[in-house]
């Protein structure tokens, strides 16, 4: 039982990271109908921005704000440079452009900062607390809390605010939204900014656990993408549930079945969903959306 509780905590912690990145995937997919394969690189860039800001002598909280502002700016640049020029084309050129952008981002950071993995200290001085038989890593606790807050925020924002409803209207039918006087391009810009900030938040939160490296984004993004499909592509709640489920499944699979095939469990679940429930837990059919 003690073992299961420890695994559950760790699984939810790592799953929450997948969920945050998956949320970015979903928001952009809903707004533009394309998958942004650079979402993982947003996490990596934000983690490096945080390292640079901390090294520059800024207090941790200020570095955090600077890194997130940097991500908001990256969201603007990404929208104008990658999505906007191709917005009237089919989804395929846009997806290819996002793959190209992810390679560009990774190599730009490599060229500017070098290949050295970096250590980013966590928000708290205490690495964790022992609660009975379970060790609670303070960084994972923070990640879980942030994810819960974001779930509440997203619900409030999309369901209770005018801007959130405009964003939803844009994602459901751009033409109709435009006829209703909503500036579609502004809504898409806001979506890119929010997704970049979300991806960045995930990167900053997980960096003290996984270290800061050029590869960190792609590793997380692959699992987050799987989580998005499991949860239901296009569904915010699905991304959260999918991410958490994936984290828990792979952690328990590794502990009780096989450690070397840990990644395999995540993708086995993904394949099972694609075969038996392609629309995911909450979402619509991928084929219909594509």
């Amino acid at each position: 039982m003690d073992l299961a509780l420890q695994l559950l905590f760790t699984g939810i912690g790592i799953g929450a990271v997948y969920a945050l990145v998956a949320l970015g995937f979903v928001l952009i997919f809903r707004a533009t109908n394309v998958v942004n394969f650079a979402q993982g690189e947003f996490s990596m860039v934000a983690a490096y921005l945080m390292v640079v800001a901390v090294e520059a002598g800024l207090p941790y909280w200020a570095a955090f704000i600077v890194a997130l502002l940097g991500m908001a700016l990256l969201g603007v640049v990404f929208n104008l440079g990658v999505y906007y020029p191709l917005r009237h084309r089919t989804y395929l050129p846009v997806i290819i452009a996002t793959i190209g952008a992810s390679i560009l981002l990774a190599n730009s950071v490599l060229a500017i900062y070098g290949p050295q993995p970096q250590v980013l200290e966590g928000w708290f001085e205490t690495p964790g607390i022992q609660v009975g038989p379970v060790y609670l890593d303070s960084q994972y606790l923070l990640i879980i809390c942030v994810t819960i807050c974001l779930v509440i925020f997203n619900f409030w924002f999309f369901e209770k605010t005018l801007l959130g409803k405009k964003l939803q209207a844009t994602s459901q039918d751009k033409e109709m939204a435009s006829l209703l006087g909503i500036s579609v391009s502004t809504m898409i810009m806001i979506t890119f900014i929010y997704s970049a900030v979300l991806g960045g938040l995930a990167g900053i939160l997980v960096a003290p656990v996984l270290f800061v490296s050029i590869q960190m984004g792609s590793t997380i993004a692959l699992k987050a993408f799987a989580a998005t499909i499991i949860g239901g592509f296009g569904d915010v709640a699905g991304a959260i549930i999918g991410g958490l489920a994936l984290g828990v499944i792979e952690t328990f699979g590794a502990a009780y079945v096989s450690v070397p095939y840990k990644d395999g469990f995540a993708f086995l679940v993904l394949i099972a969903f694609l075969i038996f429930r392609p629309q995911g837990i909450f979402g619509e059919r991928v084929a219909e959306k594509a």
């Binding site: 760790t10 790592i14 590869q215 590794a254």
Partner: peptide, 9 residues
């Protein structure tokens, strides 16, 4: 497996 993100198990 290489590039594991978690070694709790």
């Amino acid at each position: 497996a290489n590039q594991s993100q978690d070694f709790t198990p």
